[in-house]
Amino acid sequence: MSLLTNKVGFVTGSGSGIGRESARVMAREGAAVVVSDINVEGGKETVEMIRGEGGEAFFIAADVSRESEIHGLIEGTLGQYGRLDFAYNNAGIAGPTKGVADYPLDEFDKVVAVNLRGVFLAMQAELAHMLPLGRGAILNTSSTFGLVGYPGCAAYVATKHAVAGLTRAAAIENSAAGIRVNAVCPGAIATPMVDEMADEISPGARQPIFDALGAAAPMGRMGRPQEIGEAAAWLVSDAASFVTGLTMTVDGGWTAQ
């Protein structure tokens, strides 16, 4: 039996990158997956990929910074599949590459709205559904930058630290009620978000940045989105039944140095 046979869950921010590949892995592991993203075209592409691989998927557009749209995502999932076993709160944005002294307030607020408020709102809504049932698994995307400091991306670092803290707090609060809450902390992963950050730092010259990111990890390369997806699928599965409050690094050994 596959890891997620007969399970139903959703993945936010699954129109590309880590979210897309996580949704694909989860579907291959037997789950019915609701793909959700503010990017409708990207989300529908993910659904077609999953269905083309023989999996079950459905798309619901949602802006995670809006409470009503989070509730709509949960209600839509229940309407389509009749249950919700796991939720992967993955949607996030990088924001500009600036330090604390120079960070524009409006840009800071945008990053907080998606990366922190979005995860908080989603967890509240997910817990409201799962607690009466006495079961469920919640997974959040933090980052290695949510565990250590890093210059030049102040809002991203701050929000990802906050996600790690929210994860631990919610895990402690809800474990006795049968709800597991964990976070995955990706390192340097080859995604469109990293492409955009590299372009901002060095327009037209991404490769030296990618080479440096790969060389910084003991494994000597950047990670692949699917590798985060494999960890995510395990964390929301019953195979991880005694795992809660974990911030799992998937970073090629970068934070072990």
Rank of each mutant, 00 (worst) to 15 (best):
Q257R: 15
S22C: 11
L4C: 05
L246C: 14
V163N: 07
G30A: 05
G92H: 11
L3D: 07
A231I: 04
G146D: 15
D106H: 09
L139R: 00
G13A: 10
P132M: 06
M26E: 06
A162D: 08
L166P: 00
G187M: 05
A128Q: 13
V100N: 08
Q226A: 10
M193T: 12
E41Y: 06
M248P: 06
D37V: 00
M1Y: 08
F242S: 15
A169L: 09
E29L: 00
G136W: 00
L131S: 07
R28W: 08
M193D: 13
S14A: 14
P104H: 08
I138D: 02
P192F: 06
I74M: 03
S14G: 01
A188K: 04
S237D: 11
M130Y: 02
E200M: 13
Q226N: 10
A190F: 07
A188M: 08
F86P: 01
R28M: 10
D195K: 14
A62Q: 09
D238I: 05
P208V: 06
F58W: 04
V181C: 07
R180N: 11
T255I: 12
F59D: 02
I38V: 09
P203Q: 11
E29D: 09
N6R: 15
N140I: 04
G9R: 00
G252K: 08
V111E: 04
W254L: 10
M222Y: 13
D63P: 07
E56C: 06
K110P: 08
S14T: 01
V8D: 00
S16G: 04
G43W: 00
I209S: 10
P218D: 11
L213W: 15
R66A: 14
A205D: 15
E67G: 10
G229V: 01
G52S: 11
T144V: 14
G42N: 04
E21L: 09
S175T: 12
S68M: 10
R224V: 07
I228A: 13
G136R: 01
G204H: 08
N89F: 00
A101G: 09
D211P: 05
A205N: 15
P104D: 13
V34G: 02
M193G: 12
F10S: 00
A188G: 12
Y156G: 02
A240H: 09
I18F: 07
M197H: 05
R117E: 15
W254M: 08
G17C: 08
T144I: 15
M248C: 14
V148C: 10
T46H: 03
R28L: 10
A215Y: 02
G72M: 02
M193L: 15
S143H: 15
V34D: 01
V25W: 02
K110R: 14
M1A: 10
G42E: 05
G136A: 11
Q257F: 05
L139V: 02
